[in-house]
Amino acid sequence: MTSSTTEPTTYAVAADADVVRVRQAVRDLAVQAKFSLVDQTKLVTATSELARNTLVYGGGGEALVALLDKAGRPGIEIWFRDEGPGIPDLDLALTDGWTSGGGMGLGLSGAKRLVDEFEVDTAPDRGTRVRIVKWRR
């Protein structure tokens, strides 16, 4: 079994235009990794939700995008990091319909359904780190 990771590329998430830039970068990588159109769309949509969370709730931060390889099967890993207020109640935040403002309350829970791996590390005043991975089908 071979497993490798390319050096991640870091993108700043500080404005609306940055959200667009991150999802375009993820789209390019997904095309390069030969994801199906539906999987590309799911991953880019999840990226959009999470990058917006970083911007709106985290007060800005960064996204790290890397290409993975697990025994010849490509995957894309994305980290979203902010130094914002953190999520006080993660279980609640992962419930459909919950929102602290803005969206339809589908950001976290919706994004989770669109990817294969989903991890959140957060605590009040410690910021939030979200890691997602999607593998090629």
Partner: peptide, 14 residues
């Protein structure tokens, strides 16, 4: 709407 977009929206819960 593109099919891939529709599939994703439904998965998202919208």
């Amino acid at each position: 709407m593109q099919p891939a977009v529709a599939i994703t929206l439904v998965e998202l819960g919208l």
